[in-house]
């Protein structure tokens, strides 16, 4: 086949100018989309079953709004951003600091959920099998908590390796994706909080 000069000529400059989105970015975005759909199904189930429980305890008797824990989780979204910026400016010390704060905030949120569940189970005798409220509550909040746990594990991995001197600034991209995931977990909590502790609380 004769070399086609037309093609090759501008092919060269086409190659130079050819740019495409970063695969990691695309991957994470679509991962978050599926996760969103998964959560929305449990949210829908919760909304459908509000006020449908046949037996006590009902939300209005046993639920209190976890204001402080929520604020912690939300602010952790900010601290992780600070950490990122520090990393961009390659101020490793500040990065570690904010990163640790993020972990602590997330950790406290998880702890708060734990204590809430402990109270519900042992004082109010509300388990997943007690009534529809228990079923939907534990499954929705639990699904979110499990995502917090996963997030914390990754955050810890980053933290520990950095402390051990791993050159984290080479991983800026991955750190970015991790913080996206963390923001997503927060955003989900906004919805869960609204549904469980505001809309559903009165029933």
């Amino acid at each position: 086949m004769a070399e086609d000069t037309v093609i090759t000529a501008d092919a060269l400059q086409m190659e130079r100018t050819w740019t495409l989105p970063d695969r990691g970015t695309v991957g994470v975005i679509f991962l978050i989309i599926t996760e969103t759909v998964l959560f929305s199904m449990f949210v829908a189930a919760y909304l459908i079953y509000i006020g449908k429980s046949l037996t006590a305890p009902f939300p209005k008797d046993v639920l209190e709004r976890p204001y402080f824990a929520s604020i912690c989780l939300f602010s952790s979204s900010a601290t992780i951003v600070f950490a990122e910026h520090a990393l961009k400016k390659s101020k490793l010390g500040i990065f570690k600091l904010w990163w640790l704060v993020t972990i602590l905030l997330g950790g406290y949120f998880l702890f708060a959920t734990g204590t809430e569940w402990h109270k519900l189970i042992y004082e109010d005798h509300l388990t997943i099998s007690t009534n529809l409220f228990g079923t939907t509550f534990y499954s929705l909040v639990g699904l979110h908590a499990s995502h917090v746990i996963v997030g914390l594990i990754f955050l810890l991995i980053v933290f520990v390796t950095t402390m051990l001197g791993f050159p984290i600034h080479t991983q800026e991209r991955r750190v970015k994706f991790l913080s996206w995931y963390w923001h997503f977990v927060d955003a989900v909590w906004v919805v869960v909080f609204t549904v469980v502790y505001i809309i559903g609380l009165k029933s």
């Binding site: 189930a45 079953y49 046949l54 009534n131 529809l132 939907t136 534990y138 499954s139």
Partner: peptide, 11 residues
């Protein structure tokens, strides 16, 4: 023992 689809428990 959750009750998502348990019609006895109002599911």
């Amino acid at each position: 023992g959750a009750n998502f689809f348990d019609t006895q428990a109002g599911g």
